[in-house]
Each structure stands twice: as C-alpha cells, then as structure tokens.
Design a protein around this nucleic acid. Structure first.
Lengths: 249, 249
DNA sequence: CGTAATTTTGACTCCGCTCAATTGGCGTGG
DNA sequence: CCACGCCAATTGAGCGGAGTCAAAATTACG
C-alpha cells in the first residue's frame, strides 16, 4: 500500500498503478481517449490491494468508500439474509467493477470474497464522482457500468425465474466461457474457481443437482468434467439447451 | 404534451411540470435543497407523458434517450428472451425511476408497460448527465438511485434463488405494503394492479401456485383476498413466513 | 349483455430436494 | 513418503413441492 510520504506522480510506484499502462484498460475504462485524457484517469486509482483466497474485500454492512476494479483473480459476491443464509449474487473476474451496491446507502449490502488470490485497484468513490463531474467521458462510462450491472442482474432474474435447472447451468457455462474468451483465455477449457455449492447458490439449485447435471452434460457429450476442470466439447449444444428452455411452454 | 412553440419557463405549463412543486419530490429527487437549487432541478424534466393501461412506455430493443419518473400509476418491466418468453423483472409505482437499463447499451433491454392509466415525467438523459456534472447533489442522488436498483435486483435474486414459493409470495406482499405505506396509502388494504400470471412470473412460479397460496394465506388468517382486492390481516405473520424460510436449512 | 379473460380448484405427475453413503483430491504431519 | 483426515464431489433412493392439464366459477370489458 502506498504511504503518505511516497512521492506522487511520475514515480515507478505511480506507474505501476497507472490505468494508462494497464492491459485491462478497455475492460474497465472508457475507450478512445488521447494521451492527456488517459493521464487524467491515472488519478482515479489510489492504491492496489491484494486479497488472499478466502479473504473478503469488504463485508455486507460495512461503510462504503470506494469502488474496486479486479486486476487479476476471481471473486464471488454474496448476500446474507438476517439469520445467516447465504445467496451468491455474482462472480467477478479481471476488468470487472466491484462495490456498486454500496453507493445507495453508503454501506455495502453484499460481501465480496476472493475465490483465488486476487488484486484490485481501489478507486475512492469521492474521486470517481469528482472526476466524473469534470471529465465527461468518465461520467458516461461510469453510468454505463452501473447500468450494465442492472441489466446483468435482470438477466439472472430471468434465469432464476423462468428456466429449468439444466437450462440455468448451461447458460452459466456459456456465460463463463464468453467472459473468459473476452479476457484472452481459452473458450473451451477452464478451471472453475467456485465450488458446486456456490454454483448452486448462484443458480438457485442444490449442489447435488449441479453435480448430477455436470455428469449428465458429460454423458451427452456436451462437456468433460473432472472436479473443477471443465472442457466444453459442444458450445452450440449447450446454447441449444438454454434455448430449448426459452422455447418451452 | 408540450409542443415546440409553447413558451418555456415561468408559464403555467412550466409550473405544472415543475419538480419544485411536485408532491413526490422527496421520492425521486435529492432532499434538503434550497429554493434556488430546486429551481435548477426544474429544468430536468422536459415533458410529461401519459401512458394508458396496457400501453408501453418503451420496448426492449428501442433506442434509449430518457429516464422517466412515475408521477402516478403503476408499471411492470418485462424482459423477453429470444423466442418471446416473458419474465417480469419489476413493478414500479409513483416516485420510482424507469429506464436505467438503457444507459449501458444506449438501447432499452426491457419493456415498460402500464398496468393502469399512468403518467411519467420525461427526463432526457443528456440533460440528466449535463446537470449532474454541474450540480453535485443531483449527481450524488442519481448515483444512489442507480445503486439502489442494483440492490433491489439482488434482493430479488435472493428471493428467487433461496426461498420457497410461499416465502416468496409473503415477501412480495410485505414489500408491496411497505412501498404503498411510504406513498401514503393504506398498509393493510390495496388493489393488485397485476394479474396472478404477472405475479407468478416475477416470483418464479406458476399462476396456479400464486392462486393456491393466496387461498392458503387466507385460510391461515394472514390475508383476505377477493380477486385483486387484498387486505392484510396479520403483517407480522406474513413476515414470519418469509423469516421461516430464511431460517430453514 | 355476451364473450373473453382471469381466477380458483382438483387430480395427477415429475423435477429437483433430502438424506445418506461413497469416492476422490489435497494438504499436513508423523 | 505415506497415512490420515478433511473437504469437495459424486451417486443412489425416496419424497414432496410445485408444475401440468383440465374444468368450473367469477369478473371485466367491448
């Protein structure tokens, strides 16, 4: 973590946290900026923060102060209801923004937990708002990021509200594959960072059902699973499974 | 609808659409502003628009241009998947903001349909962003509204993902009652503006199940239902039904 | 006032849950 | 290095909650 007496701009430390130098730039920041505009954005991130697997970036109920951009790693967000029941509300990977749930009540509602050793860029929210007022492209972009989270959540509502278990799991796999592809990873072979229980919570089914469906998809030649290793053999077939669901009834 | 050659500020027409004069102000706008600040906000709303029962304010796929604040009436938002299956993603009443799903892709993803004759204030989005840059309280407030929609959606995800049918319906009734109370309506007696089918879609169950559960709640002395008329007899009992669910397993 | 739409209720079915036992993977310590 | 223990994942058997199909009742609306 950078300290107060560390020199600010132009140093190596500064460069290391510079958005303008970051390979994930197109994923979390507005595109099509010139060099001087990019320099403006470099003041957005105050520090970086490492989060070890199993540790939480923040907890539900904690005061809200910053947004976070995932630099590398993998997170789940969970909502805990009164008595401790836990619902997974999302999975987040490199380039995605965390913490937007906290803006509304100046307090986080969900908990963000790293599912593998991860690192995030810390963007103090006061700075996000300041910069947004003076720098239109950032304002535009920030609003889009918020809106896309709403659209994503509505997609999950559709998933949970109108699809059957096998359709939900197929959609989940297709979605994962697409997001990994966008980050330069293999579209067909990956390692699940979450447990069957976490997948089940996210998709509104029990872990046994997740396991059974993985086995069935394997029998049907759609995927190959060994524990957390997944290889997609027939992405079109998986998409067909989700589409069927939407056609039915 | 106001026309181009109608004089702009200070007229009766202007006054009629003035936020500073609106009784719903605390529901959709920042609070604690002085008179001159309120006057600034009056330029946010360009016109009002009436939407007849059954008609849509906008459709999924349409270009996005404005946000809307419900003045009176009742809306549902629906998401249509590929082949025409429809998922209700929310119900909106006076003072709530519509259209935020469109910001992310400059195109609405969901359709907003009036369930009774309604009226909305039209806030051209370019104006929202302009004013947000120069007027900090509006910026803050707007961000909070976006964030609260995210939190609301996550609440629905928890509902759909981890609660049983009777728990979901009880939670739905409690939520409706609370929002109606906040608007000065009776907390215990109201008219449902949506069909059993729409409730079922929203809550991830079939209309027959909704109907059966209403009957069961009535047998249990929790509510009284006659078609669309609902009287809540035991709000604590309803809350207990939702809480039970969260405790179980 | 008549027709369509919505709601209610019943009977039966089935998907996904519960309970339970087993297997497999992995880190830790003897 | 292997054995142990722990946690995750798999698989089976049986059950139950919610869905499906169908018919009747009630209401809304042109």
């Amino acid at each position: 973590m950078r300290t107060m007496n560390e020199p600010a701009l132009g140093t190596l430390a500064r460069l290391r946290t510079a958005c303008s130098q970051c390979s994930l730039r197109e994923l979390c920041l507005p595109v099509g900026l010139d060099a001087s505009e990019l320099a403006t954005l470099d003041t957005l991130v105050s520090t970086r923060r490492k989060v070890r697997r199993g540790d939480s970036l923040f907890y539900g109920g904690e005061p809200f102060s910053a947004l976070y951009a995932v630099r590398f790693g993998f997170f789940k967000s969970t909502l805990t209801s009164g008595d401790g029941r836990e619902q997974v509300t999302g999975f987040y990977m490199a380039g995605e923004i965390l913490g937007m749930d906290g803006i509304g009540a100046d307090r986080h509602t969900c908990t963000l937990t790293a599912l593998e050793d991860s690192e995030v860029c810390v963007m103090p929210f006061a700075r996000v708002e300041d910069l947004s007022r003076s720098f239109e492209p950032l304002q535009r972009h920030f609003h889009k990021v918020l809106s896309r989270e709403i659209v994503r959540d509505q997609g999950v509502m559709m998933l949970l509200g109108s699809m059957r278990a096998e359709e939900r799991l197929a959609a989940f796999l297709v979605n994962l594959s697409q997001r990994l592809t966008a980050r330069g990873f293999s579209a067909s072979e990956f390692v699940l960072r979450m447990t069957r229980d976490e997948i089940g919570s996210y998709l509104g089914m029990k872990l046994e059902t997740v396991s059974r469906l993985f086995s069935r998809f394997q029998e049907d030649g759609l995927i190959e699973v060994h524990q957390k290793h997944v290889r997609i053999l027939d992405i079109a077939g998986l998409k067909r499974v989700t589409a069927q669901a939407q056609n039915a009834s």
